[in-house]
Simulated assay, not measured.
Amino acid sequence: MKKVTIKDIANIAGVSISTVSRVLNGKGNVDPQLKERVLQVIKDTNFQPSSFARSFRKSSMQIDVVLSKWEEHYLRVLRGLTESLGEQQISVIPKTNLNNLGDFVVAIGEDFDDKLNASMTIGQELSSCSVVFDHFSTLNLIVSELLSKGIDSFAFLCEGLSNYRACKLYGAFMKIMFHHKIESYEIKMLNSKDPYDVAKELSILPGAILCSKDEIAAGVMKAFKDEGIKIPQQVSIIGYGNFSCGSLLGPSLSSVEYMNEETGRICGQYILKMINGEEIPKKIVLSTRLVKRESSL
């Protein structure tokens, strides 16, 4: 028989995990009716909270982490999360499948579907606590700076609209073009095409190209270098993700950083609040930043 977890108790009682945690630990204010409902579910399911309470008191709770892909920026978040919770002697265990997940599950990535019942998702809105990023503000600052340097034509290259981040970046780019009344722009969806080939399909050479991933930007740079197009003198190129390999390209790649160790540490602080039964926001919006290198003016 499957072990009943506090997540199961929360689902049956129709309350949040944090509410169940407060009832179990006797911390915080809980509405008497909700408390009675939780206690009744605990009784009906024969849930034994002693092991949970004991692990909490010993600060040896395990947090399961699921990554949508084993990519560098997701691993950075995992490292920051591990460091933050490790200071409280709480174990963080990466999971390669969705079987036998624990009481607290953190999902890192932008490709999950609504079947994943996570305590926190980092990268898309898909749980009772979602950590997402302000893509618009940084892209708007980038475009504003390029406009101030006389660049008035743009292109946006995206892998497709199959995940949360790509859709948000596409929406932000379109909003920025409208906001600045920019008429000369082009959008290319790769949809599994090679960025090298797509770069050569652009109708004109724009003054700047924004790419939804660093890998796309690297392919575009290779295509332009083979054509003798100078970067950034003729075209500025900016990627997304700030992968470590970007600094090794020639010229080195300017890139927007969003998922990093600091993100993981911030999320660790919110997870501690969740474990302690404290109320936390349903949506947490973190900022992004441009790491400017040689590929952009």
Rank of each mutant, 00 (worst) to 15 (best):
I142W: 11
L202H: 07
E278R: 07
G246L: 03
A217Y: 10
S55F: 11
S128E: 15
C211W: 02
S192H: 15
A10Y: 01
C267S: 13
K273D: 02
H179I: 04
L169N: 11
K95E: 07
K181D: 13
N11Y: 07
L272H: 05
M174C: 13
E279P: 12
L81N: 10
L272S: 15
D31W: 00
K292R: 14
E261G: 09
F104R: 00
N25S: 06
I280Q: 10
Q48M: 10
Q234E: 14
L126N: 15
V256T: 04
S50H: 04
L286V: 04
S254I: 05
R289I: 12
L157W: 09
V285G: 03
G250T: 14
N117D: 13
S153R: 08
M259P: 01
G150M: 12
N276K: 12
V38K: 04
L157I: 15
T82A: 06
L161G: 04
Y240S: 00
P281M: 05
E294D: 15
V30C: 10
K168V: 13
G250A: 09
I9L: 10
G109V: 00
P232Q: 06
G264K: 08
G102A: 01
S84A: 15
F178A: 12
I17G: 14
E87P: 05
E110T: 14
I238E: 03
M259H: 08
E71V: 15
Q40M: 10
F178M: 08
I229G: 11
T288E: 10
S16D: 05
K7T: 11
N260G: 11
Q233W: 04
P94I: 09
V105Y: 05
V256I: 15
I17R: 13
L290R: 11
Q88G: 11
S91D: 06
T288G: 13
T82G: 06
I209M: 10
P32N: 10
T263L: 06
F47M: 05
R293S: 10
E71F: 13
S212Q: 03
S162I: 03
N11A: 13
K115H: 06
S68V: 09
H179A: 10
S127C: 03
S212R: 02
R54S: 15
E278D: 12
Q233M: 08
A10F: 02
M174H: 11
G14E: 00
